[in-house]
Nucleic acid binder design. Structure first.
Lengths: 234, 234
DNA sequence: AAAATTAAGTGTTAATTTGACATTAATTTT
DNA sequence: AAAATTAATGTCAAATTAACACTTAATTTT
């Protein structure tokens, strides 16, 4: 049986807001668009959803094609489907992806003309891609307020000053590093390594890595208006 | 010019997880499906996205058709597009909607066979609609941990015991009402009215309403790892 | 080689917030 | 009028936070 015969079909695309952190500031990976319309203009990396794949899968595929990376942290952060947002009706599902800064420099596929830009100072983009970035930023902030996802932007081994400046970037604030460090350490989320990062300071800062068990536990653990104990996560 | 000529098209649908609160527990509004396949089985209210509307618009339309309510609080909470989730390939965008319990009883459209069920004890649903409810619950919890959206489930005038039991429901916990009340009042979010709810207790509890200015201010104001002051929300 | 410099990391303390519990207050029912 | 019920306020010790000072480990300059 063939159902829904008279229902309208639509073009379905994904667009990726690919974010990285260079230790100083957030960056976004943009590409020069390869197809018409708006060919050769800067845009988010995107693509159409194939017939045999989910949108999420499509986003992974597109990301892999550009960066050669798999299993990136990725999350849906909006759906753009206003009629008229492109010449032809296309509903676009937007994902943001977080990439570890230290790996990405050399992995870009040759196939695309791609470039990292400062997140707050990038070229004009096609269609409503600027709005997509805005919602991605917002989702990132909301999510990172509850879940320790910003670690996805850092290498496996990172220092506390690194995390601090990452949080400062994302929320556009100044942190008291001393209090921040103490708070972070008391969470039990970090495991101290016997090794220092000498790149960024004379004294050098100890490397840490994530305690994945605690990482998973921490999810949903800081709910406002609620006592912090025992939230049933079913 | 006609772009994207050779790209595949797909059926795009919306499904709505409609939640209400009856003072005691959360409820979900389900409908008996009107079309094949799976006709006459219980399901989420849904519909196809028309050619001239955005998915969000489609969800509003579908919601209005069922409840006659407009401007409901509504939020995307997932995209279900695995090939094989239905007989035919359909990508479904899921929204959850929050409805004020005191209004909804008499507004249901005659056109649909719809019924409120306890959220934790509802009939089996078609396709992957159960999963949709799970993600809706999860999104609700995450969102409500940062934003005071649960008020959307209450009437304009509400009492503190009402909010407390709502939070108890959503997070499946017991609250110390005394501490909860103190915390809530100190947020400045509530404006005390000169009127009591006598329905639910002998003494009666004072009604409050939301201070919308503070409500908007509160957004993003309780960030873990960050000092609570001055988060630039641009 | 000593002194200056830089940024990391640890301490200290007062103020605030939280959690646990007790009491008082307003109303209806008996 | 007493009993029952639930709202609302109060108390206090413990925990957490914010603000600030100091020490430490290394490198660079003199």
């Amino acid at each position: 049986m063939d159902f829904y015969k008279n229902e309208p079909q639509t073009l379905l695309a994904v667009d990726c807001v690919i974010l990285g952190f260079n230790g100083e500031s957030l960056e976004i990976l943009l590409v020069k668009r390869g197809i018409a319309p708006e060919r050769n203009k800067w845009s988010l990396m995107g693509g159409f959803v194939h017939e045999d794949e989910s949108p999420e899968k499509a986003a992974s595929r597109v990301l892999k094609k550009l960066t050669n990376l798999e299993d990136l942290y990725m999350e849906n952060c909006g759906i753009f489907g206003e009629p008229g947002r492109e010449e032809r009706r296309v509903v676009s599902i937007v994902y943001f992806a977080l990439i570890d800064a230290t790996q990405y420099r050399h992995i870009l596929s040759e196939e695309y003309e791609a470039k990292w830009f400062p997140l707050d100072k990038h070229p004009k983009l096609i269609f409503d891609h600027e709005d997509m970035i805005s919602t991605a930023k917002h989702t990132l902030r909301t999510k990172a307020a509850l879940y320790p996802i910003l670690f996805e932007l850092l290498p496996e081994k990172f220092t506390i000053p690194q995390i601090a400046s990452l949080y400062e970037c994302v929320y556009n604030i100044d942190l008291d590093k001393r209090n921040f460090s103490r708070k972070l350490l008391s969470s039990g989320l970090l495991i101290k390594l016997n090794e220092k990062d000498k790149e960024n300071s004379r004294k050098g800062a100890f490397f840490y890595r994530l305690n994945m068990d605690i990482y998973k536990e921490k999810i949903m653990s800081f709910l406002r208006y609620l006592p912090s104990w025992s939230v049933d996560e079913s």
